[in-house]
């Protein structure tokens, strides 16, 4: 009986496809003048829609650049045009190497990203399993809760001296700062995800008497994944936020060091470029993770 109801749903869906085909099919045929106009109109409508969608963002950016130009004119900061020209020159040779303190912007970006990757990766490897344990065992949750509440609000850079003292070197100290400041969102979100698993799913697991491993792979992990992804996204955000400050203090190659170096050179154009580079890379990381998170979002209705 149900086969009927299934095929009904398919029938409902089919006409949509058919409509699209009938619209696009007649195009290549010998078009009478009236039809040509309608095609033009249709493309015009599409372009209009795209413009309408982009307009608010473009307007916002235009106002921003305008304000920047005015402020620059009054204060002597480099305006949009000089900065743009400087950026063109900078990005024309991103991977040059002239000694340890003068390397291309590409190297600086890559080194910063690799530090973030290492610190964040370590935080994920430790934070996510820890989050699962805290979420699963109430005792552990109560045990860890005061420690987390105490350490989480600490400013990331306060951890730097500890890192320098323990590791005696700048590079691992910077990674340590990224690690300790980006671990909290992953622990907390994973733990919250575990406690929010619908009882129904756990009941299914109990009625089936699934093995612990099956419960983890088939029920716990997929159910927690969306929460975990939120934690990962927040963590990456924090890590990227902290890296510039950490590198300013530790030196070496990296965006933060570069900003400080250009400040010492009084090359303000490069500082503004660095701000844009940091912002754009942060935006890209965020979008990438949002895309990844959408992949694991089960539209449960």
């Amino acid at each position: 009986m149900n086969v009927v109801s299934v095929s009904k749903e398919w029938q409902k869906a089919e006409p949509k496809v058919a409509k699209i085909e009938t619209i696009s099919a007649p195009e290549p045929a010998a078009i009478p003048p009236a039809a040509g106009v309608s095609v033009l109109k249709r493309y015009g409508a599409v372009i209009f829609n795209i413009l309408r969608a982009l307009f608010p963002a473009a307007l916002g950016l235009a106002i921003f650049v305008g304000l920047w130009a005015i402020v620059a004119h009054r204060s002597g900061l480099p305006g949009p045009m000089p900065t743009w020209n400087s950026a063109l020159k900078l990005f024309s040779d991103p991977f040059y190497q002239r000694g340890p303190n003068d390397q291309g912007i590409g190297w600086n970006v890559l080194r910063s990203l690799s530090r973030v990757g290492m610190g964040f990766g370590l935080a994920a490897v430790i934070g996510i399993p820890l989050g699962f344990l805290i979420g699963r065992f109430a005792f552990l949750s109560k045990m860890m809760s005061p420690i987390i509440s105490l350490l989480r609000p600490v400013s990331p850079l306060a951890w730097l001296p500890i890192g320098l003292y323990v590791f005696k070197e700048a590079q691992p100290a910077a990674i340590w700062v990224i690690f300790i400041s980006s671990i909290w969102p992953m622990i907390i979100n994973t733990a919250v995800g575990v406690t929010r698993i619908p009882q129904d799913y756990l009941n299914v697991a109990r009625v089936l008497k699934l093995s612990e491993w099956k419960v983890f792979t088939k029920v716990l992990f997929p159910a927690v994944l969306p929460y975990m992804m939120t934690g990962v996204r927040l963590s990456i955000g924090v890590a990227w936020l902290v890296i510039v400050a950490a590198e300013m203090l530790t030196g070496g190659v990296g965006l933060g060091f570069w900003v400080w170096d250009e400040w010492n050179n009084l090359n303000v154009e490069h500082i503004i470029i660095a701000i844009f580079v940091v912002g754009i890379i942060g935006l890209l990381l965020e979008q990438l993770l949002l895309l990844l998170a959408r992949r694991f979002d089960y539209a449960e209705k």
Binding site: D200, V204, Y298
Partner: peptide, 8 residues
């Protein structure tokens, strides 16, 4: 409420 696992 059917309790199907939504990721399968």
């Amino acid at each position: 409420n059917h309790s199907l696992l939504p990721w399968m």
